[in-house]
Design a binder for these strands. Structure first.
Lengths: 260, 260
DNA sequence: CCCGATCATTCAGTAATACCGAATACTTTC
DNA sequence: GAAAGTATTCGGTATTACTGAATGATCGGG
């Protein structure tokens, strides 16, 4: 990927923006940023000043600290209106939402995690996933769908990392997760059985853009009891059919979703 | 603002990201970017390569073109979970949404326009505003609320620009808009009477963080007939009370919303 | 109210960087 | 299979962005 040498100031600029996420702080001073990234104070200032003048950072006049700017929202908005996958998958999400009145997600791989790129909320209960949020692969339905079809070397790397435990039911053991991924491949869908949040379950399916190539994953999430009922009413088969339809319509790729 | 000289490569990097929005293209080649920004081809390549390795751009392997990356979604997600205004205003939006079952927005000034920073959808009809999208001030309720309280010099600059006509009812005349802004200040609320989209109306109020200082604006939008009915049932007063409550709770600033 | 401490901001010199143009590799088209 | 149009690499160099010290602003304590 990063074949040619990267431009230092751009890397540093985004490191500054990332720092807010990493430290979980909504305001940072020049000093804090400089120290956090081991930069000279005036170097940091130059970067911050540039980012501020571009609207990526904003200064709170009362305490001189900086926070993330609205320009970033605006850029994300463009992503959502331009990304081919997000755009073309959205109507299918709406359709699933109408069928079950549960929260429906679409997620794409991003590095060693997954990013929720689109969401249609249920009418009743709101699930607090954020569009754009980066999530682990091992504890989400969409994550398992994507992980299951990654090349072995990538899988190994991700599995060898520490897997955070979120609930009593999170799979944090590499061996166990491998079995789970095997099952995902055999059955053609993944579940999240209260593995990220107690009381919340989800069913997810991979969307293929080619053989063994997963473009994204879609899922239906909600209260565990409700999801169980939905599964009894054919949720899994419905998701598989939807995924196959997306593969066909959007990616011009056909496969048999094996509805057994 | 831009007091110190900006760092060139960072400006250029964001100019590249902006280019996708400006040209309305979801894919751009190195050549297109270089020409669009009058950069040397290999300079552009260096910038693009860096942005790609950071996840801000992604390359489509089939045609080598680049598109906006998911990293931008992730950054925006952080903005939404960290921005004090967005966070603290959200529950009030929910409350308004529950009362009228109409779409509720919160917008903040960004340069000479406004950015919708939060939205709660109506159950029935979905309005196609994008969180993060930049909008004109002259044809939106929230825009007029914000414009009405800007310092005269800023107002003049914005009013002197060309105002795009969106519908039969859009105010595109500076004199007429000044009258409208006067009314907004006197009445304490603004309306959008099918000025951006036919059939769609909205009522908006400014949220003050200090005397003559508008932090953001909130609005309730929907089909014109429904909004009219809501107004008859006290929508305006409700919005004013909500705005005053936000000013008090969030910004520790009290004023009399003059409910007459 | 003044003094000292802390931090943001400016400035000027310089080492290092990113920029440029040319050369090369790759793709597509005829 | 050649040619045209791109993307990508490379090396020298002018420009740039980095650094450290100086200045300005702000806050708290005496």
């Amino acid at each position: 990927m990063a074949t040619t040498k990267n431009i230092q100031s751009i890397e540093r600029a985004f490191a500054i923006l990332d720092l807010f996420q990493q430290l979980g702080k909504n305001e940072l001073s020049v000093k804090e940023i400089a120290e956090g990234l081991h930069l000279n104070k005036s170097t940091a200032f130059g970067l911050i000043n540039t980012l501020a003048s571009l609207g990526c950072l904003e200064q709170d006049r009362s305490n001189q600290k900086y926070m993330l700017g609205l320009k970033l929202l605006s850029l994300a908005s463009t992503v959502q209106t331009q990304n081919v996958i997000i755009l073309s998958v959205h109507p299918y999400l709406e359709q699933l939402n109408h069928m079950y009145d549960e929260t429906v997600h679409c997620a794409i791989r991003n590095g060693d995690g997954v990013v929720y790129v689109d969401k249609v909320d249920a009418g009743s209960i709101h699930i607090s996933t954020q569009i754009g949020s980066q999530n682990d692969m091992h504890c989400t339905g969409v994550g398992k769908c994507i992980l299951a079809y990654l090349p072995p070397s990538t899988q190994d790397r991700i599995l060898s990392k520490h897997m955070r435990s979120m609930t009593y039911n999170t799979i944090t053991n590499a061996l166990q997760l491998r079995e789970e991924l095997d099952r995902v491949r055999r059955q053609g869908y993944a579940t999240d059985n209260e593995e990220i949040s107690v009381g919340l379950s989800c069913v997810a399916v991979p969307v293929f853009s080619g053989p063994e190539t997963v473009a994204c994953a879609i899922s239906v999430s909600g209260m565990t009891v409700r999801i169980r009922t939905a599964v009894e009413h054919g949720l899994v088969e419905n998701l598989k059919r939807t995924a196959a339809a997306i593969s066909h319509e959007v990616f011009d790729y056909d496969y048999d979703p094996r509805l057994d």
